[in-house]
Write a protein that binds this DNA or RNA. Sequence first.
DNA 1: TGAATTCCATAGTGCTCGCTATGGAAGCTT
DNA 2: AAGCTTCCATAGCGAGCACTATGGAATTCA
Lengths: 205, 205
Amino acid sequence: MENSFPAMRRSGRPLSFDREAALAAAMRVFWQHGYEASSVAVLTAAMGITPPSLYAAFGDKQRLFLAAVDRYLGGSDRVTATIAGAANAQDAARDLLTAAAIGGTGADTPAGCLLASSIVTGSTAAAGIREALAAIRRRIETALRLRIEGDIDAGLLPAGSDAEMLAGHVFAVVQGMSTLAKDGAGRDKLLRVAAGAMAGWPGPR
Amino acid sequence: MENSFPAMRRSGRPLSFDREAALAAAMRVFWQHGYEASSVAVLTAAMGITPPSLYAAFGDKQRLFLAAVDRYLGGSDRVTATIAGAANAQDAARDLLTAAAIGGTGADTPAGCLLASSIVTGSTAAAGIREALAAIRRRIETALRLRIEGDIDAGLLPAGSDAEMLAGHVFAVVQGMSTLAKDGAGRDKLLRVAAGAMAGWPGPR
DNA sequence: TGAATTCCATAGTGCTCGCTATGGAAGCTT
DNA sequence: AAGCTTCCATAGCGAGCACTATGGAATTCA
């Protein structure tokens, strides 16, 4: 679904701008201001192109945003693949929290997490985008929950452990750290919060 | 600061609507759609009044929103007073988490937390409102941190405990549960997440 | 009742929103 | 070079935004 727009290129004059660079610039604007507050005028200014070029290259604002989210996550299934590929569920959870702490406090990037903060409320016109992001969040949370359930079945975690709660807790902290970062928290504090969130993790047995 | 608008009433025709009921309706709209996506047209429709009445009674959209936040929190210092009045820091943290889980999953209210979800990103025009809410969040987090530090000094918590981390973690979970609720999580799950977030709380000594 | 005061409804203000019609310039293919 | 395809810049579309000027209706005070 990544390069689904435009459908085909035949010949003629080539693009006079770098599509990937323009997408990176758009991602940054969305990351900083969220979906609805990122106007096409601001986006085109940051991307160095004009509105018709934006629409020709990316379709419309919604598709541009979804492409930016995909780029932000490093591809549609990278996060879930990382969760599945971790040594165990505890490592997967810790990696997720650490990545959120570091990714949300970069010196050269906006504070917080694009996936967490760019639309949780909004107009009814943006309901589709909001639900699309909620679906991505739920998919990642479900991947973590399944990983935890697998460890429970494998005897790596106590039999009575609440996988849904554990995954929900990790995810809540990831979301919440994004707001903390936007409110001014630094990397050191967020890394300690991430570590502290793992303190209640059930011990092996 | 609550009834700072209008400045005075002298005489003449009385208000034909219930100011408190109108504010409650506005709070509900903001709670559901966030600050920027709640247009004056939608607000006035929900409040049962016309734009000039809204501006005469509440000043402008920003002041109406701040009044709605104040009403949502039950007064400007109720939350911090509750934290200060709890039996100990652990109870204060648990109460905060439980209240967020229950308050964000009411059957007759929008999902999530108004303070957490209504503006974390937005246009530069709304930067003032965004910062005002960030300040409220930081004030509550600071109150919790001070409560924890007090318990450490009193010997109710281990001497090496990281108060900033513990308060930040509780606050991150509160924020994150709001997104979880908006994404569809139910009260049962959130209450378990809230309890799980306390599992790593340092033991007494 | 007369005068003063306040509230409400209509109807707009200027502005920004996402998006696009149009025409000419640029570049590929043959 | 001819001919076609595609891209880009200007300019502007209708719609919605927060907000308000105006005038008459409602109520209080004298």
